[in-house]
């Protein structure tokens, strides 16, 4: 896949990191402000997508990236399930029980396991959307040959 002009590449380099940081902020403050795992994950996926669209890269690197994001996605959803079933061992015998202390409402470290769920779902959504886009790009590459 061919990249774009050098102006687009430079602007993308400058912007992509900021979009990534904004996504991380949305995820980690999901229990205090509007947002959460789904919105932040989609924003992180968008920051990765504009990097791929602007810089391109040959087929091998794209395939390698797809393998990595697919594995990340699987690991994230496995960790989500493990966290949920951890409550069966530690807390009372309830699936999805909030077993960590709640803390003070409004602090960054509060709300028990909800921030951890937010982070895991954010990783999962970002990796899934990135995998879907990369699958379309690889398909177009193989068709055009």
């Amino acid at each position: 896949m061919k990249g774009m002009s050098s102006i687009v590449k430079k602007i993308t380099q400058l912007l992509s990191g900021m979009i990534f940081l904004y996504g991380i902020y949305i995820i980690t403050h999901g229990h205090l402000t509007p947002g959460g795992g789904f919105a932040g994950g989609a924003i992180i996926a968008a920051s990765l997508i504009i990097l791929v669209l602007a810089f391109g890269g040959d087929e091998l690197t794209v395939v390698k990236r797809k393998e990595g994001s697919s594995v990340t996605e699987s690991l994230a959803i496995l960790a989500f399930l493990l966290f949920a079933s951890f409550a069966l061992i530690i807390g009372t015998n309830i699936f999805f029980h909030n077993y960590l202390p709640e803390g003070i409402i409004g602090n960054l470290v509060s709300a028990g396991v909800i921030p951890l769920y937010n982070i895991l779902v954010g990783i999962e959504v970002a990796a899934a959307l990135f995998t879907i886009i990369l699958a379309f790009i690889i398909y177009k590459e193989e068709i055009s040959k």
Binding site: G36, F38, V125, A128, L129, I132, A135, F136, Y139
Partner: peptide
């Protein structure tokens, strides 16, 4: 909020079939 993300997943599947 859950329905929006599910519709995104369904749209991606439908577009893959269209391709």
């Amino acid at each position: 909020l859950t329905a929006i993300v599910i519709s995104l997943a369904a749209n991606a599947m439908l577009l893959a079939i269209a391709v």
